[in-house]
Structures are given as C-alpha cells and as structure tokens.
C-alpha cells in the first residue's frame, strides 16, 4: 500500500513537472531570443564610406536578432576620446562593441580598452591594433591591399625608374594605414620609383603639391576622394590616381576614369561578419575568437560593370 502511494506520488509529481515545463515553454516561446544591444563606434560615422558597412551591419542585425546602435561620431583622432565612447556605450548597456581603433600600439592598450569596455565584448573592425590578435577582429587584408596598388601600378607603367610617387594616407597612427603603406612600399622596392612625399589626413594639401607627383596613391577612402576633388578642381591631368575606397563618390570617379584603379574592400562583408561574430560570442562565450579576414576587389573602370563586380560595388537599395 505504501509502495502504491509512492508510485502515485511520483506519477503525480512527474505530471506536474511536465505541466509546469509545458506551460513554461508556452509562455516563454516568444522570449526565447534575447536581443543583445551592440554598439558600433567608427570614425566619422555618417560618412558615405560606411554605406556598405552599415548595410552589412543592418542585414546581420536582422539575421542575428541584435539591436544595432551606430554611435554618432565625428573625427575620432585619439585613443582617449575613443575609450570614453567605449566606456559610455558599455555603461549604457551595450553587450558588444564593434570599434574601429584610431590608434593602438603597445601592451597596455588591451587592458586600457578592456577596462573601459567593462563587461562588453570588443570586436575590432577595419583595423587591428598592435600586438595583433589581442581582440577578435574583422579586417580587410590591409597589407595585401597596399601591395595590390603597387602591383597595379607595375602593370600600368612599363618603366618605373625615376617615377615620382605621392602618397596620401589616412590617420597615420592607424594600423590599417601602416599595413597598407608597408604592403605598398614592400612591393615598390627595387622598382626605382621615388616616393616624393607622404601626407596624412591632418595635413593641408595644396593642388600644387599634388602636381609634383606623377603617380598618386591614396590609402584611404576619404583621401582618395580628397585627391580626386583636388585634381578636378585644379584641372590637373598629369597624374594618375590609385586609391582605396568604397564610397559611391569614389566609384563614380572610377567610372569617370578619374581614378585608374580602385581597391575596394568588401565592407558589406566586414559589417555582416562583425555582427555575426559578436553575436556568436554573446550567445556562446566559448565561441572562437579567430580573426576574420575580409577580401577586396581590384577594380578598373573597364570592369566596373561586370556582373560580379557591380553586385559587390553598388548598393542594391537606394
């Protein structure tokens, strides 16, 4: 009799547990997915150059159900400013922060940035920091991009000896810029070309200075735009421009053949991938933190409208 009662008791308990589980399941179905707020901090956030990147971010935020928060920024030129932003976003509840570091070298950067990030996960985009790999990063092949500019120049120019080259760089502390420059210089070694000058985004450029160079190399989207603007404004036709960029303006200039070769990193991929990785990390903290490398295209005006290239280059929805 006693055994019987125990059986019945067990059965009842099991039933109750099942009922509780089922009702819990029914009630919680809608809230299964947790929506993580993710903040994005990039230099000059409203710039056109981020258009494809933002598209990627938005698409991924839909696919991975994260709440995207692109922080409005102007020029981000120093680490302190950036750390403040990171800290503020973290305090405002961001679980993940996708950040383009404007500067970063030395061991202490990890602890500093992590400190300001608090509990939030950090993911780097566009540029890594030195030493590489302390944060997960989604970055274009910066070194290769620089190298490919040089390769394109070599293709175009039969004789490079004595050619005068001017280089326009973005933020000079940024690792991506250094890597691109290094890639370019490494490839240009032994060609006999002369690097006439290097200027960064803070320097004021006169069109006269541009004229001194025969070949202009711009390592950053905004610099490429600036170079074209300066060239068209002053009507200089003598120098050919090789640049990195992805804004529509740059594509237009390429189409107009004002740019000879445009290196276009797949920024849509970069945006998508960064959210995908950080969402995976937020859902599972053990997820691998491998760096993700984003490819790029070498585009010349002749191939601009080729199917594969136009699919990547032009934003679909306007």
């Amino acid at each position: 009799m006693k055994k019987n009662r125990i059986y019945i008791g067990c059965l009842t308990a099991v039933m109750c547990i099942i009922i509780a589980y089922a009702s819990y399941g029914m009630l919680n179905k809608g809230q299964e997915e947790k929506i993580y707020p993710i903040s994005v901090i990039v230099d000059n956030s409203s710039s056109d150059r981020w258009f494809a990147f933002r598209e990627g971010l938005k698409q991924a935020s839909r696919d991975y159900h994260v709440q995207l928060n692109i922080v409005s920024t102007g020029e981000l030129s120093n680490l302190e400013e950036e750390k403040l932003l990171i800290q503020r976003e973290s305090e405002n509840g961001a679980k993940g922060i996708i950040v383009q570091m404007c500067d970063g070298e030395g061991e202490e950067i990890f602890t500093q940035v992590q400190e300001s990030a608090g509990a939030a996960d950090i993911l780097l985009v566009e540029t890594d920091v030195q030493p590489e790999g302390i944060f997960p990063a989604v970055i274009p092949e910066n070194y290769e991009m620089g190298r490919m500019i040089a390769v394109s120049i070599k293709e175009d120019e039969k004789e490079l000896t004595g050619k005068k080259i001017g280089i326009l760089m973005g933020h000079k502390e940024r690792l991506s810029q250094k890597q691109r420059l290094k890639g370019f210089l490494d490839e240009m070694e032994d060609t006999g070309a002369e690097i006439l000058w290097q200027i960064t985004d803070n320097d004021i450029v006169q069109s006269k200075q541009l004229e001194t160079a025969e070949i202009l190399v711009a390592l950053e989207n905004d610099e490429t735009e600036r170079a074209v603007d300066l060239l068209t404004e002053s009507g200089i036709q003598s120098c050919s421009l090789y640049g990195v960029g992805c804004s529509e303006k740059n594509v237009y200039y390429l189409d107009k053949k004002l740019i000879k070769v445009l290196i276009v990193p797949n920024e849509f991929h970069m945006g998508y991938q960064s959210v995908a990785i950080i969402a995976a990390r937020l859902q599972d903290h053990m997820a691998s933190t491998q760096n993700s490398v984003v490819s790029f295209l070498v585009v010349r005006p002749e191939v601009l409208y080729e199917e594969d290239i136009q699919k990547l280059l032009f934003p679909l929805v306007q």
């Binding site: 109750c16 009922i19 509780a20 009702s23 819990y24 009630l27 919680n28 809230q31």
Partner: peptide, 9 residues
C-alpha cells in the same frame, strides 16, 4: 505549478 506558470512570463 500554477504560481510557477503565472510568474514564468
């Protein structure tokens, strides 16, 4: 079980 259900949501 009822209470559990109520507070689950």
């Amino acid at each position: 079980a009822g209470i559990f259900m109520l507070f689950g949501c």
